[in-house]
């Protein structure tokens, strides 16, 4: 079994990113859309750390630290929005919110 190269890590990251994108297009549930966004952010994190390992630097890992923090903030605000929307219309399908009326 061949050792993993930088290409294999980048490939894995690309596959995860594509899965996240597919999730955003295909799912009609706000929570799952947020989860797909988290998958994409994780794929990006993996890219950063893999290239970091290749270059022997630590900048990538620090960027990952910031990406995680921003993802946490974004998840918190996103979920607050989901709660507010659900409280208003009792559904989690994004199609219920297509008109700009509240």
């Amino acid at each position: 079994m061949p050792d993993p190269t930088l290409n294999s890590y980048l490939m894995l990251s690309a596959v995860l990113f594509a899965i996240g994108t597919a999730g955003i297009f295909l799912r009609r549930n706000l929570i799952t859309i947020l989860l797909s966004i988290e998958i994409m952010l994780n794929a990006v994190n993996l890219t950063f750390v893999a290239v970091d390992r290749y270059l022997g630097a630590t900048d990538g890992q620090i960027i990952v630290f910031f990406v995680m923090t921003v993802a946490a903030a974004e998840a918190a605000v996103g979920l607050a929005l989901v709660i507010a929307l659900f409280r208003h219309k009792a559904t989690l399908s994004p199609d219920a919110f297509t008109t700009l009326k509240w």
Partner: peptide
């Protein structure tokens, strides 16, 4: 996914 695959496979195989 196909575009990313094409982009990554055109990098030469770099070992860690």
């Amino acid at each position: 996914a196909a575009e990313l695959y094409w982009a990554i496979s055109s990098i030469q195989k770099t070992d860690l």
